[in-house]
Amino acid sequence: MTDPDPLALDARKGLPPHLRVLADLYPKAEWQGHPNFNQLTAFWLERHGMFRQLNDLLVEGTEKRLDGANPRYGREMQHYTSAFLNQLHGHHQIEDHHYFPQFIPLDSRLEQGFEILDRDHHALDGHIHALAESTNAVLRKIAAGEDDEKEAVTLLEAQRAFRTFLHRHLDDEEDLVVPVILEYGAALE
């Protein structure tokens, strides 16, 4: 049996020190005041914030459903889960095919970091499908007028696991990407 990859999304606790060389130079608290922090970077970070909020909203909705306090649960889950997963998938496509290829040549020390983020996106695709399947199982029960508690418990577990993976990925992605933009801003124009 092989040892698990310590840099895999479900195993790591953050970026290893050798991939934090720019993150350590540019602490998060100083990002917005930097001259290379632009509107596109602010928008990108806002999107990440939106993904965190939507994921939290999904978890809270299912928790309320299990507490018997969410009569609009089915409609809300369908709407928010669809928006969340579609937007997240599209966001990753743009990063993988447009942004990351621009960043990689700027600093060869961080190439492994972008490889990790790409692997994260593939791992998250599996979680996206699992979350969609769990959501659909609940929605099928609701549509049939059947008790969906068992499926809702499974969905809540999937939502919480997804939140853990998503937050780890977004935090690491921000710690890699934003410092690259701050360090090499002029080279990106």
Rank of each mutant, 00 (worst) to 15 (best):
D5R: 08
A8N: 08
R12H: 10
R12M: 10
R12Q: 11
K13I: 11
L15V: 10
P17R: 09
P17G: 10
H18C: 04
R20Y: 00
V21R: 03
L22I: 05
A23W: 01
A29G: 01
A29P: 00
E30S: 06
E30A: 09
W31R: 08
Q32M: 05
Q32I: 07
H34Q: 07
P35W: 11
F37I: 03
F37Y: 13
F37H: 06
N38T: 11
A42Y: 05
A42T: 03
A42I: 01
A42H: 02
L45I: 14
H48G: 05
G49N: 14
L54T: 05
L54E: 13
D56E: 07
L57G: 09
V59A: 02
V59C: 05
G61I: 06
A69M: 02
N70K: 14
R72Q: 13
R72D: 09
G74Q: 14
R75H: 09
R75F: 13
E76A: 06
Q78G: 09
Q78P: 03
H79I: 15
Y80S: 02
Y80N: 02
N86S: 15
Q87G: 10
Q87N: 13
H89T: 15
H89G: 12
H92V: 15
Q93G: 04
I94F: 10
D96Y: 10
D96C: 07
H98E: 14
Y99H: 05
P101M: 12
P101Y: 04
Q102C: 01
F103W: 00
I104A: 05
I104K: 08
I104C: 01
P105I: 13
L106G: 01
L106V: 14
D107R: 04
D107V: 05
L110G: 02
L110N: 01
I116D: 00
R119C: 01
R119S: 01
D120H: 00
A123Y: 04
D125R: 15
G126R: 04
G126F: 04
H127K: 06
H129T: 13
H129R: 11
A130Q: 10
A132M: 02
E133K: 14
S134I: 01
T135N: 07
V138D: 03
K141C: 11
I142Q: 11
A143L: 05
A144P: 09
G145N: 11
E149N: 08
E149Y: 02
K150V: 13
K150W: 05
A152K: 04
V153P: 00
T154L: 04
L155S: 08
L155F: 03
A158L: 03
A161P: 01
A161R: 04
A161W: 08
F162A: 07
F162N: 13
F162S: 07
R163V: 08
R163G: 07
R163Q: 12
R163M: 03
T164I: 14
T164F: 07
L166T: 06
H167T: 14
H167E: 11
H167R: 15
R168E: 02
R168G: 05
H169E: 11
H169L: 06
L170M: 14
D171W: 10
D175F: 03
V178L: 04
P179C: 12
I181G: 06
L182I: 14
L182G: 05
E183P: 02
E183L: 06
G185N: 07
A187Q: 12
L188P: 00
L188Q: 06
E189F: 09
E189Y: 13
E189T: 06
E189C: 07
